[in-house]
Amino acid sequence: MNSEDFHFDSGGPGLAANELERELLRRISAGDRDAFRDLYLRYHRRLARFLTRLLHRYADAEEIINDTLWIVWQRAGEFRNASRVSTWIMGIAYRRALNMIRRAATHERAMMLEIAESEGSVSDSAQALEQRQLLAAGLAKLPLEQRLVLEFTYYMDHSCEEVAEIMECPVNTVKTRMFNARRKLRTILADSAPGLEKSL
């Protein structure tokens, strides 16, 4: 894995990454396509993974990615540094994805699906792959809003306040969703994957 690809402002504020992305936005607002290309490539992998998990179809994920980055191109000049760039972009992607889910009612369909992640690779150990699949199946059984809070926090390292901003809800709602998500996930894993739950 290229560490540059997986650059989630991880481990805290990620100030250097945010500064770089702010500069990219400034250049994009002046019509700089190289800057747009850089930003697109920085965000594609994280958006692809997040949205594919959310929408279950890469084609849908890619449509949202392209929509999101297209909006970034259009509105880069409107970014006011009130939040991190990643929060702003994830907010756009989240709202687009939510619209797609609501329109297509894929959420209900997705909730009934057992996630069969086709992400196996020769470099993954069988145990790690199985654990990821079990966890993914457990996450898929959570209500969408709860699952997203977990994704934004654990996968993308967003703060509670940032998750609230992305999901356009009060901070306390995020905390409650997280609390319920953790409790429910634990119950799900204990029932459906007791081996995984014990190993955690």
């Binding site: 396509r33 697109y40 490539l41 692809a48 594919t52 990615i65 993954d124 990821r132 977990l150 996968y155």
Partner: peptide, 29 residues
Amino acid sequence: ERAIRALMKTESSVDYAPQPGLARTLSRI
């Protein structure tokens, strides 16, 4: 929670090819 997070963070080896989408978006612009 640290174990859950570590598992969620575990990257699979799936590569998402960004170039076709990037080309389409630039073309759209």
